[in-house]
Every structure is written in C-alpha cells, then in structure tokens.
Simulated assay, not measured.
Amino acid sequence: MPRRIWLVGLSGAGKSTIGPLLAGRLGYRYVDLDREVEELAGETIPHLFRVGGEAEFRRLEARAASRAARATDVIVATGGGWMARRDIDRTSGGRVRVWLRVRPETAIHRLSGEGAEVRPLLAGPDPAAALAALLAAREAAYAEAELVLETDGREPEDVVEVALRCLRRLAPRPPADREGTVEGTVEGTTEGPQES
C-alpha cells in the first residue's frame, strides 16, 4: 500500500469526507491542508483571503504541503487548487495522487448544505459557474493523478472501498510484470461505475 496518499480535486469532491475514512481503514494519519494553513495563519481561510488575499493563502499552502510531504503513512486532503499549482513540486516524495472526480453540479449541491462554509473562490453571485470554470482550468492538472475515482452517485464508504482496491493494485511490481496490466493498476486509470 502506498504510504503517502494525496487526495486532489474540486471543492465538494469529498476529500475531507473520504480522507478520514480512508485513513481510519489504513491506520494512517489524516492531514487536511486547509486546516494546516489555518493553523499556520492563526485565522480562518475566509479571513485570510480577506486580509492577505489569495497570494498569502498560496504561500502558506506551499509551507503546509512541504511539511505534509515529509510524513509517511498519511492521507493528505489538498485544497481544490493545489494540484494546478506550477510553483511547487507536486510529484516528489513517493506520493500517490488520487483525483476524486465530481461533476460541478454535484459539488455545488454538496457545498450548499446547511452549515457548509462558503469557499472564498466561490463567494460570487454564481458559484456553480465559478466551479465549472475552476474545473475547466484545473482538469488537465487533476488528470496527472495516478488514480482517478468517480464520486458521483457513490456513498463515501463505497468510494473508500474502491480506493483501497485500486491502491493495492498500484503497488510496485517488477518491470516484467507491467505488460498487460489490468484496469486500475496504471497511472491515470479511472475506476467508476460501470455503464450498461
């Protein structure tokens, strides 16, 4: 099993829900990069955006990511924009990146529930359009992940089961065994609901 698993994807993809469940199943530590940023800043992310702007948030996010990258046996839930950053190394440290793919309309539904925090980049008059634009801008970066999991129409526990199955199949094997790999064992493979 990979010892550093980083969850990537849009806000509303389920990273902060799947992460603790997956960590519990593996006996790993769970790290939420947004919460780490808040700890470094000593304030909430919405307040940080208001006071220091996105640039200050990104600076602290890079610090938090660097700290998390040194850990092992860890599940890291990244912010929605982390995977699209070109100013930090997103691939070092033996990480396996898992893209939790979600349709923008599903993400908006999840993010608009009672008690949900307003995400700074979605605080405008049309958050659905903003989220769709963010996905369009970030999709190519998300697609660099070693594993892609569909979350639409799945309960969190189901996503965790699929993740565990696919992560086990990502374990390194001798080069001679890599020919003819089955679905779910190579970079960029998508595992999602089967269509009839």
Rank of each mutant, 00 (worst) to 15 (best):
A123E: 05
G53L: 03
V159D: 05
R103S: 10
A176V: 08
E155H: 13
G153R: 02
M1D: 13
T17D: 07
K15S: 01
R154W: 15
R25H: 12
G9Q: 06
T185Y: 07
A137H: 09
T78R: 02
L22Q: 04
P104N: 07
G180T: 11
S196L: 06
P127K: 00
A141Q: 08
L7V: 12
L164K: 03
A141W: 12
L122A: 06
D126I: 03
A68K: 02
L122I: 11
A55E: 15
G27L: 00
V148K: 05
R95Q: 03
A62K: 01
A128T: 12
A68P: 10
I45V: 15
A137Y: 09
E114L: 00
D126A: 02
E183S: 12
L164V: 14
A133H: 12
E56G: 12
R58K: 03
E191M: 01
P174E: 14
W99S: 05
G79W: 14
A68D: 12
V148E: 09
V98F: 09
E161S: 10
L21Q: 13
R70P: 02
T91L: 00
P193T: 15
V148N: 03
V159I: 14
R58V: 08
P172K: 00
L100S: 06
V31A: 04
L10T: 11
V51C: 07
M83Q: 14
A143R: 13
L147Q: 10
I88N: 03
I75L: 04
V118G: 07
R86L: 10
L147K: 03
A71E: 15
E39K: 10
R138F: 14
P120I: 06
T91E: 11
R63W: 07
R110E: 12
A62F: 03
V160I: 10
P104I: 05
G27I: 01
L33Q: 09
R35I: 08
T189P: 04
E183T: 14
L135P: 15
V148W: 14
S112I: 02
D177S: 06
P46I: 02
L48R: 07
P2W: 05
S196D: 15
I108P: 04
E157Y: 01
D126W: 06
E195A: 15
P172S: 02
M1E: 14
E187I: 10
V98T: 13
G42A: 01
T91N: 00
S16M: 00
L121V: 06
L121D: 10
I45G: 06
S16C: 00
S11P: 15
R29V: 12
L164S: 07
D87N: 04
P156L: 00
R67C: 00
R97E: 11
G14P: 05
